[in-house]
């Protein structure tokens, strides 16, 4: 088992395997997105309260889920890199950050676009939007630290530790924000919370969520491959590979 892990986690081996894996993620992503969008935009009925505006949900909710998921992946792989000194895990963490930040940004903006017709204003200090904003700051902090330290190994480890500290803090931050928000409610009534969701709305939501998930896996492979090439640029196997291109 351990031997297998070490073999797979060697950058060279990963580079070869990942090339074959990418289409297995990319093609289902595209298919799921097409079906999900069709279901979400044409099949799902309008909401009895929110009319057609709720269709923003099909991009907003998956983006919000992914923003959190990617942060956790980042912290876990940073932890693996820190504890077992696996370079590949560090590269996965580094490559995840910009993807996660972009999904966080998407969740924030779509949340505020959804909020406009619901609340009458683009920004309300709603618990979820606030948490999402703080998550974006956490991503920025990680990326800033990563780029501020010159030595690559040190940068990986230091920012990795920050990601772990962040992931320990996320539940505390989230629950304190939710608690804070319930205190100050009254100004706004959020219509997001609903007891149940119609099956015709749930199916496209899950399809889109799965599509975003697979999309992340495809992109993380591409980005990690770039990191591998760049960091191993002076190794013979990279040189030979590039010469063949």
């Amino acid at each position: 088992m351990w031997h297998w892990i070490q073999r797979f986690s060697s950058p060279k081996h990963f580079y070869v395997i990942s090339a074959k894996l990418i289409p297995w993620f990319a093609v289902p992503t595209a298919l799921l997105m097409i079906v999900g969008l069709y279901q979400g935009l044409f099949v799902a009925p309008p909401d009895y309260q929110q009319g057609e505006s709720y269709r923003i949900m099909f991009v907003h909710v998956p983006a919000a889920w992914m923003s959190l998921f990617i942060y956790v992946v980042m912290a876990v792989s940073a932890g693996i890199g820190l504890i077992w000194q696996i370079k590949l895990a560090d590269m996965v963490a580094v490559a995840s950050a910009p993807i996660g930040a972009s999904f966080t940004f998407l969740a924030l903006v779509t949340g505020s676009l959804w909020g406009k017709p619901m609340w009458g204003t683009y920004w309300v200090w709603d618990a979820r939007l606030t948490s999402e904003l703080i998550l974006l700051f956490l991503y920025f902090g990680y990326m800033a630290l990563q780029s501020a330290i010159e030595d690559q190994r040190t940068a990986d480890k230091a920012s990795g530790l920050l990601a772990i500290v962040g992931v320990v803090n996320i539940p505390i931050i989230h629950y304190s924000v939710v608690w804070w928000n319930t205190l100050h409610q009254g100004a706004t009534v959020t219509k997001f919370a609903k007891p149940s969701i119609d099956i015709h709305m749930l199916i496209p939501l899950l399809l889109m969520a799965l599509a975003f998930q697979l999309f992340y896996f495809a992109v993380i492979l591409v980005r990690t491959r770039n990191e591998v090439l760049y960091r191993e640029r002076n190794r013979r196997w990279v040189r030979e590979l590039i010469e063949q291109l």
Partner: peptide, 15 residues
């Protein structure tokens, strides 16, 4: 989009 075109389509465009 039932009058919500601006919000819905700009969300999808950004996505």
């Amino acid at each position: 989009m039932g009058g919500y075109a601006v919000y819905v389509w700009s969300s999808y465009a950004l996505a």
